[in-house]
Design a protein around this nucleic acid. Structure first.
Lengths: 335, 335
DNA sequence: TTTTTCGGTGTAATCGATTACAATATTGTA
DNA sequence: TACAATATTGTAATCGATTACACCGAAAAA
């Protein structure tokens, strides 16, 4: 292992000078610097980051905890985070919570151990109070998910209004009997999308049949099963707003399994616009979240906090976008 | 910040003793240990991992470089890696190469900086020689992808025989005029799958029409475009072996766009068995790779190398599995 | 000429743990 | 009781960088 002392000896200067050169911080005479650089090159010296980190007590590493790394929605956000991180010399430590609040919390010890300078959470299912305490001591940013009424720095879309928008789209297509296949209501985004659904219905004077609102998990299977429930009712809904794209696909699959067609017999709208939404048949009409941007924004925000900069505000709402494809259709009188 | 010295003072012992207690390494009297543990608890002491790392010169961190984090195939492997890592007290530093050999290589400096104890590469597109040199100095394991004729420790399936198996399945369905939509041939797995295809054809005395082998990228769009090329030929193939599932889906889409049906008019087989393969319509017949297992195995292997254990062998071939679904059909005389 | 000023460099303390080695306490043995 | 063996604990060096502070010499100011 080549140490800074080796370089110093070869260049015939002190370690302090070498350090100044490689961090180009201080005032070093040009010729001296060249001598040092030469020695660095000759010895193929790379500073030991651990030592630097210890001394400066910073790791240039951040921790990102995702609920499910195999969900492309989150991996796209992650990519946004990482792209910014790399640019500014940070590395990303990955925590995959596997949809488990406990394991989510277990990653947080990494901060206390000083293995990371900050934390971005793409999931907010563990104890809110604990997290708020942690954010007193360490830089924390939430992305995608969030806590209600919390002051924690957050980057996300406005799930309530997006859900309203999705529902209103169905309403604009003349649908009146609309069902909602909701994500888990103990997760904010599930709750907020459900809320948006109800708001839109109320605003347009439409009543919501309680049997047409079903809570499930953000998975294909769950979407399938809940749609099957709807299809067991006397009086079908004509359109379905699903909590996310996977659920929407499950719902479509269920509809098809009964011999019906989408969008002819049922309109289905999803949420997230995952990679596969456009490949699916029918191509899914859905609300797109700016995944990559959210990741980038979250990282930029975290960096500001790490650097102790003042935040102009702490909640960032990014724009969503309704993507109209082929899974919804206007309800005609015969419909 | 609570330091070990604070704990030592409160417990009225030396820092050495505290250190011994928290790493339960040495011989410490029971009562002393209890005293120390009490002080630890009272002060809520957490060792500064950086200091430990510097002294022990180990980071308990590994670096995983993936070609594309938004590809569920790789994120499943990653999950396998991470699950083992967490269990044994390691953390995973993520490098997303974004399908770019240069950026892949840029992550390797992290090793030299001592920010990670080892490296798992899920992509092998950068300079082989360089990597082999690196593996002299640092623990390295390749997973999924590999270099031909290299002694680098590797975990993967046998892509040649898997591709042969896939092709033979088509042959067993009476197909004779079979096309191959290949992944990039500058990537080993692309090459090996192509090789397996040719082997199977030759072994069954079938000739390969050169115009029925097209090289593309491992993407949906690429699969679509290349299938369109086939569909522009005078003499169609009756079956297609695609380099991976995304390409297979693209091919199916192209076929449908021309008004043909899968599997009635064309049989299509994919590769990887990604999450979406079963949701796609028709559900994709494909070759499943043991993603999670490969990740686990790779991590276990890396750990052995880190610990300086002797490896019984360096190339691990895991079993693949042909998953028969609905995208292939026996060729009848009417074709 | 003398005194400041400051660019450029070196010395040594420091970050916070681990651990080699030394020292002391305790127990066992003769 | 005396001495050896062992258990337990402490002292201080160490990991490899960064950086506060001191210092020197040359240029600028008085």
């Amino acid at each position: 292992m080549v140490r800074i002392a080796d370089v110093a000896k070869l260049a015939n200067v002190s370690t302090a000078t070498v350090s100044r050169v490689i961090s180009n911080s201080g005032t070093v005479k040009k010729e001296t610097a060249e001598k040092v650089m030469e020695a660095v090159k000759k010895l193929n010296y790379q500073p030991n980051v651990l030592a630097r980190q210890l001394r400066r007590s910073e790791t240039k590493t951040i921790l990102v905890v995702v609920p499910d790394i195999t969900n492309t929605f989150f991996s796209e956000v992650l990519r946004g985070i990482e792209s910014v991180a790399i640019q500014i010399g940070y590395q990303v430590l990955l925590g995959d919570a596997r949809n488990n609040a406990e394991s989510e919390a277990s990653y947080l010890t990494i901060l206390g151990q000083k293995k990371a300078d900050g934390l971005i959470l793409l999931t907010a299912r563990s104890n809110q109070k604990m997290l708020e305490e942690i954010s007193q001591d360490y830089p924390v940013v939430l992305a995608c998910e969030y806590y209600e009424g919390s002051r924690l720095p957050t980057v996300s879309i406005d799930n309530v209004s997006s859900a309203r928008k999705a529902t209103e789209y169905l309403i604009s297509l003349n649908h009146k009997r609309i069902g909602h296949i909701s994500g888990p209501l103990n997760v904010v985004v599930g709750r907020d999308r459900c809320k948006g659904f109800h708001q839109a219905m109320a605003q347009h004077g439409l009543s919501v049949d309680p049997s047409l609102v079903q809570e499930g998990e953000f998975s294909f299977e769950s979407g399938f099963n809940l749609m099957m429930k709807f299809l067991a009712l006397e009086d079908f809904p004509t359109a379905i707003f699903a909590g996310n794209d996977e659920m929407a696909m499950g719902a479509v699959k269920a509809i098809k399994s009964k011999g019906f067609k989408v969008p002819e017999d049922f309109s289905v709208i999803g949420f997230d616009d995952i990679k596969f939404a456009s490949i699916f048949e029918p191509a899914l009409t859905t609300v797109a979240q700016p995944t990559f941007d959210m990741g980038q924004k979250a990282m930029q925000l975290l960096l500001k906090i790490i650097n102790g900069e003042e935040l102009e505000k702490s909640q960032f709402i990014l724009p969503d976008k309704l993507i109209v494809r082929d899974s919804c259709k206007e309800l005609t009188i015969n419909g």
